[in-house]
Amino acid sequence: MQENSRLMIEAREVSKFYGAFQALKNVSFSVRDGEKVVIIGPSGSGKSTILRSINRLETIDRGTIIVDGMDVSDPKVDICKVREEIGMVFQSFNLFPHKTVLENLTLAQTVVRKRNRREAEQIALELLKKVGIAEKAAAYPAKLSGGQQQRVAIARSLAMNPKAILFDEPTSALDPEMIGEVLDVMKNLAQEGMTMVVVTHEMGFAREVADRVIFMDHGQIVEEGTPEHFFTSPDHERAKLFLSQIL
């Protein structure tokens, strides 16, 4: 799709070990500006680990990861600068329970982006409206349903004006009836051109939204391609087996 746009994320020969266990084996991939990449694979395949390596929530043992021109794998690089630009949405939402929905959205804006409170609140309210939850601005996260919490978490991430957002199984902790509302928000984001890397088990979402699907197994990228190709005629046996198990 965006063949000529610049590279937003580039991972080269990334390896990671937990003791003797190798969680990532020479993983290389790249994400261009505006691209939507979905990473799928069985649990324990390393898909969350590679995603979390992008903003250094996990450190890697070998290889390099370049994000927006900054070398994440270089310990001397100020990782906060990278994280300011790359949002993240977690499986378990991780909203701050001691702060209201609005404060969840304004905290990093004021502390990290140094915006004044009025400006931050204005941005926050607009984003809450966008994810369809403006009326809950004054509520505490505990009063919200899982779907609502995850939408707030997405809005919190957007409040930092990120250049890309990483989604780590954003719907896996949700009750089935709430998955749709979160996926809708994500689809809207995709349409607006947000660069997204999504680890998910939602194959419908992958098929509809992804520019590219990466299939991982045992810490390796087994197959990478367009969703049409991957879902209809995958090249590798392991991918075929995986698809036959989940579809």
Binding site: R83, E84, F90, S92, F96, L107
Partner: peptide, 21 residues
């Protein structure tokens, strides 16, 4: 929960900021 620190860090906060806030 560990996710609280991770969420704060992934918003660009330093460890100290995340701890305090």
């Amino acid at each position: 929960p560990k996710g609280q620190m991770e969420a704060a860090l992934s918003l660009g906060m330093s460890r100290g900021q995340a701890m305090r806030q």
